[in-house]
Nucleic acid binder design. Structure first.
Length: 884
RNA sequence: GGGAGUAUAGCUCAGUUGGGAGAGCGCCUGCCUUACAAGCAGGAUGUCAUAGGUUCAAGUCCUAUUACUCCCACCA
């Protein structure tokens, strides 16, 4: 036993860093291929290097750390593989902003190489910062295996996958309409487009029908795109316009002749039922254009300005152009009306700029064939989502998936491994840079300028980080991983793409379970965001309350998949819990310094009721907590530990232990010390995954010679150690104590005043009370406990009626008989209502016939119990009445 | 337009296969009882959103309704 040096208050700052260094020094986090042990692996969702970790990361990481630490203690070879993500577009935006701030330069002023040098500097700074934050949180990641999505290995994996998919025809380059952000000046995938409701207008415009004075009324929200109109479409079933199909309309302002075509896509109800078709600037119109072989006329450039096809509007930005064109339409008398209109517009998920659909040549992943096995994997339960309801989101997205646009007009990211012959235009996709053109032999070869969508590399994370495409031992041993932990907001971006990538490249799902959590919101339920300034920095909380308090708070009071509010009161409550276990441990270890005992129970000790009770409860809790953790019910497990530690171990067992601890009987003292230590050790083990620092710190105080808590064995449930009898007896005693305390409080009797306790009871209850009378003396302010006959009870006593016994306290003049009468009458009422209830149930034939026998017997016992108690209470009431 | 979630004590939320409503915080009363006032003891507070249904039995399962939230979507 080490010398006790524990402060009165829990002070996490004094040991958290020290403990983390200790784990690092001993390399406890490092995973090795070990065929004698079962593997358990998690890959960390790599945080973006755009900045620092927020509360959502703290939640995500804590969940993983709890699972990993639990599995490590259970004897698995655990790998938690950490890393960071280059976050292509997000980081590029940040780095460019920084360059602008520092040097006043824009992207146009920089070469690609200059930019990349700055970006790598950024990644070094923020990558390190993020890792430090994770360490503060206590993450037990294997840092020796830390990865980055743009490191050499990941680059190889990306190239390999690209080439594989290209060779299989699953990656192609095509001229298609894509989402374009005019501000970021790059394409975006469908998942990167958010929809925002915006107030706009419906402009109703006349298009003259050629050779007549008739006109067709068109409604549009984007009049500026009319400059690129190449048709008008109506539904062939629409009686109003039916006859116009095949005729020609004249585009106002431009005076271009455009055909009127029939297409089922057009909705009869929407707008005027006639649709202007702009194949270059609308995804639907693009498809209509393909069906009818329409010309594509682009009128807006990549920066969002009108181009040379826009006549005198050239050079205006698209919003300005809208105003001008409406003005002009009005002037020439073709603007019929303008209606207010609320509609959804696509905006860039990074900068919020309204997306401009554009036709351009981009790289795509063909999704149809890849989606099917990913759908099957969920259906066949090769991968299980927790909670299951997210399966709907998963399926819905995969079922409706369109080809994935993967090229980005950015610099920061994986350069696309496609090469073009400058002479003959041949496209070559290969792992290595080709020396000469495979078609014409020219050496004039240029690599594609674009980079890949950042999620392309993230999708490979579960295997790229384990050495793939090499066939490594790690990959063989740790893949597929066991569980992936992430927020529901990232199912589309990441989970789904990892799924089809893992299945396609590895032939196996990347993880067996996906555990999905919600968002951490602010105390008012708003999303934490920079613009609102309502973010809470995990490091500040750790600094003030300790990482353990933060972790425990994140793990309790919410359930999987649901959002949670961050409230400082909850952190305080968790900190108080840490303080509780700190002081309980301090108490247990006080006076143990000089002992030579190892405080292991041998089985030969003389255990009293409270010992048997707490040991049996410990065993039960072991079972509950373990099964909760195995089912990833982390919050339930944490709650059970909390209750066991605080309510049962501290408030009852420790209080009862004091008598023997402070007594003269050395043997009894040693026994109780052993039980205290035994239970405490397991408590520390249960708590360790949730509160790793404080538990390890306490462990070093109590167990300096043994191995570290982090690698100690998880307690095993032993059914033979359940002692139902003792638990039942102890519950009886606790019930008596609570009742006595209640009565005394009702009577306003100071705890300092001790009173005799006269007991009337028979059989087992009588024996129980007498054997354990010391408990009543210690915890219920009794001076002594005496068995009595009913006839000898004086009238100036208050009484407590419990199951199988009546307890009397002669408090004479301290008793307020009116209060006592009221109390007894309340009690009587409650007994009567219980009896009525039970009778009600038992007189219900359906219940008697169909309910389980145990339940029926329970009701019968209840009646007996309360009827007995009712008799006693009635006697007391009569007796008290004589005193008034 | 489609889908999902939430609705339980004043507040924040648990409630694991249906079998007598829980916690933390807050509130009230009394305690500095030699582990802990970041504590101890006692107490009050709920038509478990509404209406039906299934069942012997519903906070829990089913249906509808209401309110709030979120996600998806190519109605100009």
């Amino acid at each position: 036993m080490s010398e006790l040096k524990m402060d009165k208050n829990y002070n996490p700052k004094e040991f958290e860093d020290k403990i983390y260094d200790f784990w690092m020094d001993k390399k406890y986090f490092e995973a090795k291929v070990n065929k004698d042990k079962k593997p358990f692996s998690i890959v960390l969702p790599p945080p973006n290097i755009t900045g620092q970790l927020h509360m959502g990361h703290a939640l995500d990481h804590t969940i993983q750390d709890v699972i990993i630490r639990f599995k490590r203690m259970q004897g698995f070879e655990t790998l938690w593989l950490p890393g960071t993500d280059h976050a292509s577009i997000a980081t590029e935006v940040k780095v460019l902003n920084k360059i602008k701030e520092d040097e006043g330069k824009t992207k146009d002023d920089l070469t690609r190489e200059e930019f990349l040098a700055k970006a790598w500097q950024w990644r070094d700074i923020y990558g390190r910062k993020i890792v430090n934050q994770m360490k503060k949180l206590g993450n037990s990641c294997d840092w020796s295996k830390e990865r980055f999505t743009m490191d050499e290995g990941c680059n190889d994996a990306v190239t390999e996958v690209f080439v594989n998919l290209y060779n299989k025809g699953l990656i192609y380059k095509g001229n298609r309409i894509i989402n374009w952000c005019p501000d970021c000046q790059t394409t975006l995938s469908d998942a990167e487009v958010e929809h925002a409701e915006k107030a706009g207008h419906f402009f109703h415009i006349k298009y003259q029908i050629k050779g007549t004075d008739d006109y067709l009324e068109i409604a549009t929200t984007r009049p500026e795109t009319m400059l690129g109109d190449t048709a008008i479409a109506v539904n062939p079933d629409d009686k109003r316009y039916h006859d116009l199909i095949g005729k020609t309309a004249i585009l106002p302002i431009v005076n271009r002749e455009i055909p009127i075509i029939g297409d089922k896509y057009v909705d009869l109800e929407t707008g005027t039922g006639a649709l202007k078709v702009t194949p270059s600037h609308d995804p639907n119109d693009f498809l209509i254009g393909k069906r009818h072989n329409l010309e594509e006329i682009s009128v807006i450039d990549e920066k969002g300005f009108m181009n040379e096809n826009a006549m005198h509007f050239k050079g205006m930005d698209r919003d300005e152009c809208r105003k001008e064109i409406v003005k002009e339409l009005d002037e020439i008398g073709v603007l019929i009306e303008v209606k207010d209109h609320l509609h959804n517009v696509g905006v860039c998920y990074r900068c919020g700029t309204v997306i401009e659909p554009r036709v351009s040549k981009q790289w795509f992943v063909k999704m149809d064939d890849l989606a099917i096995p990913a759908l099957d994997a969920l259906k066949n339960k090769d991968m299980k989502l927790i909670p299951e309801r997210f399966g709907k989101t998963y399926n819905h997205w995969l079922e409706g998936i369109r080809d994935w646009c993967i090229s980005r007009q950015l610099w920061w990211g994986h350069r696309i491994p496609a090469y073009y012959c400058e002479d003959c235009g041949e496209t070559m996709v290969s792992r290595d840079v080709p020396h000469k053109c495979s078609k014409c032999g020219s050496e004039n070869i240029k690599q594609d300028a674009d980079v890949l969508d950042t999620w392309f590399s993230s999708a490979l994370w579960p295997f790229s980080t384990m050495g793939w495409p090499e066939k490594t031992e790690e990959l063989d041993y740790f893949y597929p991983t066991n569980v992936l932990v992430t927020g529901y907001d990232i199912i589309f971006f990441w989970v789904i793409r990892m799924m089809f990538s893992g299945i396609e490249q590895m032939g196996e799902v990347p993880f067996e379970y996906t555990l999905i959590h919600g968002l951490v919101r602010d105390s008012q339920g708003r999303k934490m965001s920079k613009s609102l300034g309502n973010g809470v920095d995990p490091l500040e909380i750790i600094n003030e309350y300790g990482a353990d308090a933060l972790r425990f708070m994140l793990m309790t009071g919410n359930s999987p998949g649901n959002d949670m509010k961050f409230m400082i009161e909850k952190v305080e409550a968790s900190r108080n819990f840490a303080n509780k276990i700190w002081n309980a441990s301090r108490f247990v270890m006080m006076g143990l310094e000089d002992s030579t005992s190892n405080f292991e129970l041998t089985g030969n000790e003389e255990l009293d009721l409270s010992d048997k009770w707490i040991l049996s409860r410990l065993n039960e809790v072991t079972n509950d907590v373990t099964s909760n953790l195995e089912k990833f019910e982390l919050g339930l497990a944490a709650n059970k530990i909390y209750e066991f530690v605080w309510d049962e171990y501290c408030d009852w067992y420790i209080e009862l232990a004091k008598k023997r601890l402070y007594g003269e009987d050395e043997e009894a003292k040693l026994t109780v010390q052993k039980v205290l230590m035994t239970v405490l050790k397991d408590i520390l083990k249960f708590m360790h995954p949730f509160m790793p620092f404080i538990t390890e710190e306490i462990w070093t105080h109590m167990n300096s010679t043994n191995k570290a808590l982090i690698i100690s064995e998880w307690p095993e449930f032993d059914e033979t150690k359940l002692d139902k009898n003792s638990v039942e007896q102890m519950n009886g005693i606790m019930d008596a104590i609570k009742n006595i305390r209640n009565v005394r409080a009702t009577m306003d009797v100071s705890p300092k005043i001790k009173a005799k306790l006269l007991v009337i009871a028979e059989g087992k209850v009588r024996e129980n009370i007498i054997t354990n009378k010391q408990y009543l003396i210690d915890l219920a302010s009794c001076s002594e406990v005496i068995l009595e006959e009913k006839t000898n009870i004086s009238d100036d006593a208050v009484s407590v009626v419990i199951e199988g016994a009546e307890l009397f306290m002669p408090l004479s003049d301290l008793i307020n008989f009116e209060v006592e009468l009221k109390r007894l009458e309340d009690e009587k009422k409650s007994f009567e209502s219980e009896i009525k209830r039970a009778h009600g149930k038992l007189s219900n034939k359906g219940f008697v016939n169909k309910a389980p026998k145990a339940l029926i017997n329970k009701e019968k016992d209840k009646i007996k119990k309360f009827e007995d108690m009712l008799v006693s209470v009635n006697e007391r009431i009569e007796s008290i009445k004589t005193k008034l």
